[in-house]
Design a protein around this nucleic acid. Structure first.
Lengths: 219, 219
DNA sequence: AATACATTCAATTGATATATTGAATGATAT
DNA sequence: ATATCATTCAATATATCAATTGAATGTATT
């Protein structure tokens, strides 16, 4: 006798779920949410052995979460579609609400240094159009290059102190990064405030901005 | 040195993902989406050993997906909140779009016998109010008892043939079940059509109806 | 208090996943 | 063609997970 179609489906769903069931793969997905990446770029940024990263990527591919294309000697991976972002977002929300440890980490680490609520995408868009804010993208230059909020200033965290003069002191700064738990923008806001600048974070990160259909600029 | 908060978070998220990364646990969640259930009820309905079911349930609890309460000698489990449904729904959609096997199973098995599109919840609600349809709930009696579409007729699949006389021959029947991949309503529609009755399925199942905030009736 | 029952825990076995290493493939450049 | 580089495959040791069994816990009933 053959197994029921329902069991076959559940087995497939379980495979997809297991594919996002590893911290390294979640981190890989967070990076791919910024844009296409090669195996080498990913492995070095995450501190994984190349073969290891490659295998994780193939598990993600088997689960339909990423696709790859060859460009010369490089193989570039990217997220299959925005459904991956949706899945990760459900996962995050659920974990924040229902797992005590997550709530503690989020409140203890991310919120302590930062009593304010983040600026929503809609609010930011309005304030941008009114010319009221400086938008700061704190991601590395290559991620910035492959797409960013129009008019944003790209200053990776390591250069922030050295380039403070680029900010207009009277103008509010809104910083963003890869996503909700990307620490870079928290750090940036904290450091800017120490210097007496008015700074807040944007909600979530660039992938969500893109998925919301808001305007982008590249290079 | 301590691990970064981001890594700690990703580890937590991965735990949640792994919790839904097993076919039995997905099936457990589908059943709990119908309402509270005891360990024994779940284990017998899924054909699992009791200890086995209990351990799966505890993994789900550790992951924050279900909660439990004691009622006399029974321990009743239920979904933590509607976020669990949202997560499962993202998972389903993603798998349907990006995994070839899933598409095949869905189209091959579920759609072949049934060229029609399901009735949307909104459309059903209108037709119900206009008194145009008989709503058929094909789930087992206990699931029906803990909540169903108002005015629905409960005929488990096994009794369908014997109780055909309860249907008004001129009236359209809309059948529903546990969820998108619950086979019962497909079967029911197929059998009713063989008898010359006009029957369609409702989209998804009762948990989604409930989550959409639509009216419910119990026993 | 003693018994019955539902559930959970603990220990075992077999299966599956991960990280590592070194070799194999596939594409470009010389 | 040969060399070079990025990536993937294959094989291994280690760790984690799943199902089973039998014992332990906790609650209701007698």
């Amino acid at each position: 006798m053959s197994i029921s179609p329902k069991q076959a489906l559940f087995a497939e769903f379980a495979t997809v779920a297991r594919a996002i069931g590893h911290p390294h793969r979640l981190e890989i997905l967070e990076h791919l949410a910024q844009g296409e990446r090669g195996v080498d770029a990913l492995s070095s940024r995450l501190g994984l052995a190349i073969a290891n990263a490659s295998q994780h990527l193939q598990q993600l591919r088997r689960a339909g979460l990423v696709t790859s294309r060859r460009d010369g000697k490089f193989v570039l991976y990217r997220l299959s579609d925005d459904g991956v972002l949706a899945l990760l977002s459900s996962l995050r929300q659920l974990a924040e609400r229902n797992i005590a440890e997550v709530g503690q980490i989020v409140r203890g680490y991310f919120d302590e240094r930062d009593s304010m609520e983040p600026v929503s995408r809609g609010e930011l868009l309005e304030r941008m159009r009114a010319g009221l804010v400086t938008v700061l993208d704190v991601r590395p230059a290559d991620e910035f290059a492959s797409g960013h909020v129009p008019g944003a200033l790209n200053i990776p965290l390591s250069e922030l102190e050295a380039r403070l003069s680029e900010f207009d002191p009277g103008r509010e700064i809104v910083a963003y990064c890869r996503g909700t738990y990307c620490v870079l923008s928290f750090e940036a806001v904290a450091r800017l405030r120490v210097r007496g600048l008015k700074a807040r974070r944007m909600e979530e990160g660039l992938p969500e901005w893109r998925a919301a259909g808001l305007p982008l600029e590249s290079t």
